[in-house]
Structure formats: C-alpha cells, structure tokens
Amino acid sequence: MNRTLTLVTSNPHKAKEVAAFFGGSVEISHVALDIPELRSDDIQEIAREKARYAYDRIHRPLMVDDTAFFIDALNGFPGPYAAYVLSTIGNTGILRLMEGARDRNARFTTAIAFADETGIFVFSGTISGRIIPEPRGSGGFGYDPIFEVDGKTLAEIPLEEKSAISHRARALTSFRDWFMNRQDRCLVDTNR
C-alpha cells in the first residue's frame, strides 16, 4: 500500500529532516501553514491543537510537530516556548543565561500529532544532552550548535545520523511504527 502524508510546518528544515527519516517509505508532501499556537506548558496538548487546526483547514491526513527545550539550570526554560526564545534571544542569549552554570544538562522533547478523519493521535520522543559554552558545527538548525550529545553537537552530526537519534527521530519512530501498521478507522481519539 502506498502511504502518503502531509507535513504541516513553516520550517523547511523540519520538512527536510522528516522526509529523510522516512527515506521514501512514505511519500511526504510539505504544506506551510501559519497555525496559531496554543499557550500551554504541555507540549502534547500544543501539538494536538495544531493538528486539529491544520486538519480543519486542509482536510487530509497530516502531521504536525512541536518541540520543547528544557534546560535544567534554567528551571526548564525555555520549555515549550523554545521557538519564541530562539527567535528573540537566540543561542547567544541562552549561552549568556548559562554563564557560570555548572549544571549544563538539557533535553529536547518533540510531540508529533497525526490527524485524519478518525481522530488525532500524539507521539513523543526525548533526547538528553548538555549545553556547551560555545556553538559548534555548521549543520542542523535552531539550538543544534549548542546542544551536545555523546561529545558532538547536533550541528556536527550528519543529517542521516541525526535523523536516527534525535528527539524528532524518536517521536517519528513511534509514529511510523503505528502509522505503518494501523488498521484504518479502527482507532478514534475521544478528545477530538
């Protein structure tokens, strides 16, 4: 069975990463749609509402994601507001906030929400690492140059490798396993 899926995101880097993850097993089309973002501390709730909004507009099976970035020394900041913080203070601002911090532990969590006529389903993945004092690497996007896992920043890891280990990859793996094996119309999300 040929499976197709629409990825709704305004970030072309995410679209490229998701397409690389599926490697042709699922045909991915990309739709850039401005989605109002729910203000919540719950990343899964944010992803669910983004999927609901997108599905109500384009009426085809789709997937959205939302990512939170939790820094232990900053009491979990920026959390689900990672995109806003990146666009306002950037990696430079985060590194300033981290000056002198001994605890450099951090984690990314991605929630992926899939929506179709049967409901909305949410999958998540997390990767733990640490904030380094200076950016390294030329790949990736966002916080990748300051987030280190096993001695390398996500910006130093080739896309193929990142697509296998990242928070998004972990969420995508859970989603893919469900999506490729699901019996259509047998599962309904009662929260819809």
Rank of each mutant, 00 (worst) to 15 (best):
I28N: 02
K16I: 07
G90F: 05
M63R: 04
T4Q: 15
A106H: 12
V85R: 00
V64N: 01
G90M: 11
S138M: 12
D177C: 02
F108Y: 14
F69D: 03
I131H: 05
A113G: 11
G140V: 04
E99W: 02
R185T: 13
A155E: 05
E117Q: 15
Y81S: 11
V8K: 08
E161C: 00
R185C: 07
D103M: 09
G23N: 14
P78G: 07
T9N: 05
I71E: 13
S87W: 01
E156R: 08
N181G: 11
G140W: 05
I58P: 01
T110Y: 04
G129F: 08
P80C: 11
A82I: 04
N91C: 13
L62D: 01
S10I: 02
D66C: 06
G76R: 13
L154G: 04
G125M: 00
I58K: 04
L172W: 06
F175R: 08
P135H: 11
R96N: 15
D189G: 15
S174R: 15
V149C: 12
P80L: 04
S29L: 00
T153S: 02
A113E: 00
G76M: 10
T173F: 13
G142T: 05
S25N: 10
L95C: 12
D65L: 02
D42N: 12
D65G: 13
I120W: 00
S40D: 08
S25C: 03
F108D: 06
I35M: 02
A106V: 11
E27G: 12
E160L: 14
R39V: 13
H13W: 10
N11L: 05
I112E: 06
S40V: 03
Y143T: 01
N191F: 09
V31F: 07
H59G: 03
I89P: 14
R182Q: 14
E17R: 11
E37D: 04
P78W: 03
S128Q: 12
S124T: 12
K14H: 07
D116Q: 09
Y55W: 14
T118K: 11
L187M: 14
S29K: 15
R3S: 08
L33G: 12
R48Q: 06
T92F: 10
P61E: 10
V8F: 08
F77I: 00
I89C: 15
Y81P: 06
I120E: 02
F108S: 06
A83W: 05
I132E: 00
L159S: 04
G76S: 09
E148L: 03
D144T: 07
F175Y: 10
N11H: 10
V31I: 15
L97N: 09
L187N: 13
T110H: 08
G151M: 02
W178D: 09
I94A: 05
P145R: 08
T153R: 02
R130Y: 12
R39K: 15
R104L: 10
A155K: 06
I89Q: 14
L33C: 12
